[in-house]
């Protein structure tokens, strides 16, 4: 092999960059976040059910929230009829956060884990935050 020093240095840099995720993680995976559902409001409910079914809310809540935002603010229609035909009053702070009053243990858990920084809080506030 010619220019062994340079070639090996280059290959070490290459392998180092491409295995970044391995050595940065150092063999321990972060535990899967479990958002808490034990707020007083949820515990009062007879049937613990969000406005749509759980799997849909897990994967698609952001698209639903965006749709509801547009419907409420741009069309002025604050009644959302869900897939079961029930009417829900559209309001992040008064409907969503009434049950999910634990932003830190609910919203932020997964968002921080997945590195998502939603812009909800550019306009809204968390009504339950202590520093208010």
């Amino acid at each position: 092999m010619y220019d062994t020093g340079k070639v090996i240095t280059g290959l070490v840099i290459f392998v180092g960059i491409f295995t970044f995720a391995f050595w940065y993680t150092t063999g321990t995976a972060a535990p899967r976040p479990e958002p808490k559902l034990d707020t007083p409001e949820i515990q009062k409910m007879a049937k613990k059910q969000c406005i749509e079914d759980t799997q849909f809310m897990i994967t698609t809540h952001m698209q639903l929230l965006n749709k509801l935002r547009d419907q409420a603010l741009r069309d002025g229609n604050r009644w959302y009829v869900n897939s079961k035909g029930e009417k829900v009053w559209i309001s992040l702070q008064n409907t969503c956060l009434k049950c999910h009053s634990n932003k830190k243990d609910f919203c932020d858990k997964c968002h921080n884990y997945a590195g998502v920084d939603p812009y909800c809080w550019d306009c809204h506030i968390d009504p339950n935050r202590s520093e208010l």
Partner: peptide, 11 residues
């Protein structure tokens, strides 16, 4: 992320 992070942690 659980899967990808698991791959990177070799577990």
């Amino acid at each position: 992320k659980q899967l990808a992070n698991g791959l990177a942690s070799l577990h």
